[in-house]
Computed example of a mutant assay.
Amino acid sequence: MNVIFLGATKFSLELIDFLVNNDIKIQAIYTTKENIVLPKSKTKINNVNHVDLYEYKYLKDTPIREVAEEKSLSAYKEEISNFNPDVIIAAGWYYMVPEAVRVIPKNGVWGIHASFLPKYAGWSPLVWALINGENDTGVTIFKMDNSIDGGDIVKQKKINIDFDDTIDTLYKKVTETTKSILKNLLSEESKINFTKQNQESLEVYPRRTESDGILDFNQNALQVYNFVRAQTRPYPGAFAYLDEKKLILWITKPSNKVFQDKELGEIVIENEIAYISLVESSIIVNEVEYENKTWNFNKLVMEKKLEGSLIYTSIKKMEE
């Protein structure tokens, strides 16, 4: 099959690399800058997983075009038509694909979405699934239309979410599953079938920003644990404030230990282990970032004598 690829992330690069190594012909790649502006909302997005595909020498013989708000994919429809692709694959792509482009390939434009649609359509599906404590998610390859992730399903597969999964490990599972699905689909062109989605069943989740990573110590230990692992590296991280400085929690572990006489967000030491007191529970923190330095939390607490200090979930609360 002849393929055109739309993407600009590490996920995109892994799939491109996989397809090239499996002798799938990529005729052209359309990519974006690290910072893009969504046309309708005018919202500027910083793509934390952005990859500059121009830097990869093994793609030097593949035409690469940069798509921006002022020059949308529609501007390339004649060039895309001349490539005569069998399918266009969009992964790590943030713009809608216009109908003028979607009608060009005979198998349509396939979006790759990291959920088992119709669940977790929209933005940041893996982050939301981890925050909500789901036990599974999935990968769905679907034919793009005018809806948000509501097009006909080409193929989908469920993926287990283990208790110790983070956003990083879950992305790796999704990537490997996607490779397997694509390899089968692109080698079995004649067997491609499309299954209608019930668009009324779509669960569309909103876009998340870095500020959405603020912790809530009114939650219990499991909720805080899920919140942290959903936004740990390579994402900006779940955070709060300690002595008016940002404290990012990278690695945590839920605990059933209750400190009745302690305030929410108070640092407690018991048996040389540092806890943060929560609602009817507590959290053990293993790794944090503070004062632009990565710390073992126990070492930070001991070295700076922070036992009894309060971690606040906003600057405003610190001032009250």
Rank of each mutant, 00 (worst) to 15 (best):
E69D: 03
G150A: 05
G308W: 00
Y235C: 00
V103K: 15
K191V: 00
D149L: 02
V154L: 09
E99F: 15
G138Y: 08
L310D: 09
S309M: 06
G108H: 09
E307H: 07
G150I: 09
A100C: 11
M302H: 12
E70D: 13
N292L: 13
I141K: 06
E70F: 15
G111H: 06
S41V: 06
N132Q: 12
L242V: 05
V288I: 14
Q156V: 01
S201N: 13
N298W: 11
D23I: 07
G92A: 06
E70L: 14
L13N: 02
E79P: 14
Y312N: 13
E189W: 02
G138V: 06
E291K: 15
L185S: 08
D17E: 13
V101Y: 08
N292R: 15
E176Y: 08
V279D: 14
E134L: 13
W110F: 03
Y171Q: 08
Q219A: 08
M318V: 10
E189C: 05
P206I: 00
I159Q: 11
M96P: 00
Y205S: 03
E210P: 15
P105C: 13
I283Q: 02
K40F: 11
W250T: 10
E287N: 11
I64M: 07
D162Q: 12
E134W: 13
P236E: 00
E272V: 07
L278Y: 04
D261H: 10
V285G: 03
A8C: 14
N226M: 04
F259V: 11
D23P: 00
G7K: 09
I112G: 03
F11Y: 15
G138E: 04
D212R: 10
G133M: 03
K257E: 13
K155C: 13
D86G: 09
R233S: 14
T209W: 13
G213Y: 11
N21D: 13
Y241P: 04
D261Y: 09
G308M: 05
V288F: 10
T31H: 09
N22R: 05
S72W: 07
Y241C: 10
V224A: 01
I80R: 01
I251F: 12
K179T: 03
I161G: 02
Q223P: 04
G122T: 02
Y312L: 09
L215Y: 04
V224D: 01
F217M: 07
N198Q: 12
V103W: 00
S180M: 08
Y58W: 13
V109E: 02
S147N: 04
N296V: 14
E280N: 15
I276F: 01
S74N: 14
F297W: 07
T209M: 11
P85N: 12
Q197M: 08
F142M: 15
F163P: 00
L278W: 02
N84M: 12
E266I: 06
N271D: 12
T252L: 02
V3Q: 04
L278E: 02
D149A: 06
W128F: 14
L264F: 14
E266F: 12
T177I: 11
L186F: 12
W295M: 01
T166M: 03
L170T: 02
K196H: 10
G7C: 06
L247F: 05
V103C: 05
V3N: 05
E55G: 02
Y290Q: 10
E99R: 12
I311C: 13
A75F: 14
D23V: 01
T140M: 03
